[in-house]
Design a protein around this nucleic acid. Structure first.
Lengths: 217, 217
DNA sequence: CGGAATCCTCTTCGATACTG
DNA sequence: CAGTATCGAAGAGGATTCCG
């Protein structure tokens, strides 16, 4: 049955870690959360962002996460005629979990594996983490076009925020491939090499200095 | 085949979160790590601490975690004639991940589910988290006997540490059931009720005040 | 006795095809 | 576009057995 009782398989332990894993510990769940941490996405976008997930599993996970209150569906008004999934306030609180996992796993991304996908979202999250760790990232509203997908990184006194979508009146824009962005952040590509081969397109007040301030080692 | 290529199923993404989940994202893996965060354990102890895991899955997970460098086996000298699994230095760095997950999942443990196991380890980790969050936990080397299993919580200027095992020269000892410890920490049991029904045994300098300082709301 | 490997059944995954 | 239907392959869980 597809519509069985939704409490599929629990660890059966009264422990906050076990309970958390009952909710988001299934395969793919935390990667769905990772995608939604930068903003709402539609079903098809999620499937495209998670190569190999299989539509059945994606539907199951979305249902489970919605039942548990981690995500919710937002029905867009008629002109758009599309449903988007987004994190609830409680789901947003998974950000420290994603951050801790990313910090631990970042020791693994130095040597890339052949064939690994480099999604715009993971590139953007890596850039965000870099900006959060950095002492003084360049302030401004920076638009990033990663494989053509738009993101905004805004740095001001209130903090550093990242989200999906085009920036309204950005201070500057950088367009590059997601794989190059990741290579820059991993230190496998220098800004000089990237700029020289014309793979980075900077606009507005996104100067070399700003770009290096965001991506540099 | 049992001894197939050990890179069973990868997300195939060059993203630190995905890579981290390739290593510790499988079912049961993070609960094994949770157990080992308080100190080494033998195979049989792990199986007892994780009801429902199944010996095959436990053996597979231990092998995978060892291959990835998260845990290692320590062969005890002849008299013990037993092997213990422990975290490597890298595996120890999963502590923030466990902590973030526990913080997120703690909103789920307020209403306990019927039949949930209350393991001594999860009780001890909850107590530890409480002590870490608390402004000034009572300083000293406190021994806890949870369901008869010994733990030590040491609080001094250097910080708050928890580990499995008997304490040498503890300042005081508290013996109680793991389920009562969890109920106290969750606020479902008051110290008055627990003491009145004789379910808490305090020794040495583990006074009512100290105990309340460790477990109290 | 601790530490698994084997066997068996059941569920889940992942891929493809199909439908409102 | 957003899912459901179907199916072979892989994984989980439980009991038993084997090995040191």
């Amino acid at each position: 049955m597809a519509t069985m009782c939704n409490m599929a398989k629990t660890y059966g332990q009264h422990c906050p870690i076990a309970r958390a894993l009952d909710v988001v510990g299934e395969r793919w769940s935390l990667l769905i959360v990772r995608e939604l941490l930068l903003g709402p996405l539609r079903y098809t976008d999620l499937r495209a962002a998670l190569p190999g997930i299989g539509t059945r599993v994606l539907a199951d996970r979305l249902k489970h996460l919605a039942d548990e209150g981690v995500i919710e569906m937002r029905r867009l008004p008629p002109p758009a005629s599309a449903d988007a999934y987004q994190l609830t306030a409680w789901g947003e609180k998974l950000r420290p979990v994603a951050s801790a996992l990313a910090a631990w796993g970042s020791s693994l991304t130095g040597r890339p594996r052949r064939g690994d996908a480099r999604s715009p979202t993971s590139a953007m999250m890596a850039l965000w983490r870099r900006a959060l760790v950095r002492p003084r990232p360049p302030a401004g509203r920076w638009q990033l076009l990663l494989d053509g997908q738009a993101f905004e990184l805004s740095v001001d006194d209130a903090g550093t925020m990242a989200r999906r979508g085009e920036s309204t009146a950005p201070d500057g824009t950088a367009a590059l491939a997601a794989s190059d962005a990741i290579a820059l952040l991993d230190g496998r590509l220098t800004f000089g090499d990237a700029a020289q081969s014309g793979r980075v397109d900077l606009r507005g007040r996104m100067t070399d200095q700003v770009f290096s301030g965001l991506f540099g080692a």
